[in-house]
Design a protein around this nucleic acid. Sequence first.
DNA 1: CCCATTTTATGATTAAAATCATAAAATGCA
DNA 2: TGCATTTTATGATTTTAATCATAAAATGGG
Lengths: 198, 198
Amino acid sequence: MITVELLEKYGVVKKSFDKNDIIFEEGNLPLHYYQIISGEIKMSNYNDDGREFIQGIFYNGQSFGEPPLFLNQKYPANAIAVEKAAIFILPKENFMKLLEENPKVSIKVIENLAQRLYYKSVMAAEISTHEPEHRVLKLIDHGIAYFNFQQDKNGYLINFTRQQIGDLTGLRVETVIRAIKALEKKGKLKIINRKVYR
Amino acid sequence: MITVELLEKYGVVKKSFDKNDIIFEEGNLPLHYYQIISGEIKMSNYNDDGREFIQGIFYNGQSFGEPPLFLNQKYPANAIAVEKAAIFILPKENFMKLLEENPKVSIKVIENLAQRLYYKSVMAAEISTHEPEHRVLKLIDHGIAYFNFQQDKNGYLINFTRQQIGDLTGLRVETVIRAIKALEKKGKLKIINRKVYR
DNA sequence: CCCATTTTATGATTAAAATCATAAAATGCA
DNA sequence: TGCATTTTATGATTTTAATCATAAAATGGG
């Protein structure tokens, strides 16, 4: 996360998006740095059958879509607003200048990319070699640490729909529903009027 | 990749590993920066049944294992020498000092992490939503660009075993063998005395 | 507040890849 | 060079999650 002051110094602009608005699309060349002010953004792919895979979900203060920006490669996925959102947008040249002139920001960028790489490593191994219940639980436990799940008297509220959990773990929604029920039966999590707690 | 001169200035040491030697293990805390001089290193996970998932394969000049180093988190996977290898090893403190004092290296580190994140994004979507033939072909095409596959009169030689392809794509070796045969039949690649060309 | 859409849910059936079994060919190290 | 190990290969069988079908409950936008 880069401070507002610094972003403004380099000519950032603020833009609003409605639910389901596309911020950028797979295959396009990256031209900007994006940092969320408010709302929720997902990056995802669709296969030929229209089946979705969610690469990640991002919230306030988080940036997204940098890797291809640094590599001059096309976006490997789409960025879509999950809900109404406001985003800081900085042109690529300005962002690169900001980085050059502010070495400490580079360290922040490195830490951010490292965090995302860590998540992808964990989930790749899960998706490849573990059964549905294990995958779902791993995603949930990761989410407690890194997505903004809120804690209350029942535990952490996992504010993802079954469909989102499926799209993040490569499972079908029916499989997720059954996995969550099985996990509840095993005492690994709670379901309180359809909401999942851990 | 950081230059030898710079690494030496910060007290790097060179270490040799035999085939199958472990460089570091999943769950350990990272204490060093690793950069390959020669040989081949894989990072991989094993599930409870001993089934392997290969996170990535790294060659001459490439570094590996940085993400948890920046995050003070445990390694999410093992690093193992696929063949005899020589590696530069720099203690974490020295590496961090090197970065602070050489901002341009930070940019290189960012580009490197971005490249790996890009690969993981592409493969995650593949593994989650595509059928075996598509996955195998995507891995091969990525490999042509980023692993060190050599080109000859038959095309690019894919110097991975069927097992390795399986461990990189989350498929069983028999499934990979059948997928490769099917891809050959479709003219997408060639098999010349058991070696795969694209 | 109504109604279309989304979300959760459950049972039956199917399909696809994993698993199991077996073996020939190739590799490599002792 | 010989022999154990690895790699490639193929057919049969099984298992697991996907698919299909259907519906109740919840949500939310107009």
